[in-house]
């Protein structure tokens, strides 16, 4: 059998690179490569070309405000139509924090000023003065209907609200989620997954890593493609320890 391939598009790695979100790219790379898939990581940034057909999984993280201001034009205007088409055509996206907010329609600042976003997903974000900074636990429903516990860390002052046709990604067990009120975290539209969760998200949550890889491989090789099984005991052990720390860990006085 011919070797299968997977191309990961790492968007703006020089600008959107906060809170260890590059760990998500490393996780996708590792769990695909260990299955014998030939993985390539393309760095897509200001001035570089975006090859929609050849990009299987796109990753957008969050950045500092000043750095998001530098790349926003490139995403919203230069690459905007291509990205919107990719999302509509069912390409796989994972967007975290700032990347999540930028896919929506707009971001409204404390000052009332409204920043134009990509408008690929029917959702919007409003800034609030109180920042949510804490460990998080979510419940995620896998493609086979079974449930997985997901562990992460949130750090955001934006409150995100989902429009028609946009489903939440996960149910909040611990933490604030999209807006601190409705009990949901993140957004899903077709094969685009958005969340506020850092951690990094994917390394300790291989259920999501594998789902993203499988969906991308089905896009490339047809719906019959089945992702080969791969041990995840190391990841599950890290998740279990993190959950235990969140439940029982205390600030240690020294």
């Amino acid at each position: 059998m011919e070797k299968t391939k997977l191309v990961i598009g790492h968007f703006y790695p020089d600008l959107l690179n906060l809170y260890g979100d590059r760990g998500n790219v490393l996780a996708l790379y590792r769990r695909a490569a260990l299955r014998g898939i030939d993985v390539t990581i393309e760095q897509i940034t200001i001035g570089t070309k975006l090859d929609a057909d050849e990009t299987d999984i796109s990753f957008l993280g969050g950045g500092q405000d000043s750095e998001q201001n530098i790349m926003k034009d490139d995403l919203v205007h230069d690459k905007g139509q291509t990205v919107r088409d990719m999302i509509e055509n069912g390409k796989v996206f994972l967007c975290i924090c700032g990347g999540y907010q930028m896919l929506g329609k707009y971001y409204k600042e404390h000052t009332g000023e409204t920043l134009e976003c990509l408008g690929a997903l029917d959702l919007y974000t409003e800034a609030d003065k109180v920042r949510f900074i804490n460990d998080t636990v979510y419940e995620f429903e896998k493609d086979d209907g079974s449930k997985a516990t997901i562990v992460g860390f949130e750090n955001h002052s934006g409150r995100t609200y989902l429009g028609e046709g946009i489903k939440p990604f996960m149910k909040v067990i611990k933490g604030h989620g999209n807006n601190g009120t409705d009990g949901w975290e993140g957004a899903v539209y077709k094969n685009t997954f958005c969340t506020y969760s850092h951690g990094s998200l994917l390394p300790k949550n291989p259920e999501i890593t594998d789902m993203l890889i499988e969906r991308a491989m089905k896009n490339r090789y047809g719906s019959d493609y089945v992702l080969p099984p791969l041990d995840d005991s190391g990841e599950q052990a890290a998740k279990k320890a993190a959950l235990d720390y969140i439940k029982n860990g205390k600030e240690q006085m020294i």
Binding site: G20, R22, G23, F153, G199, S200
Partner: peptide
């Protein structure tokens, strides 16, 4: 690796480092 206030509560930062 600890995550008391003085260490930073968020341990995500270890993924920013090129261990590979």
């Amino acid at each position: 690796l600890s995550s008391n206030f003085a260490d930073g509560k968020d341990v995500s930062w270890i993924w920013d480092v090129d261990f590979e």
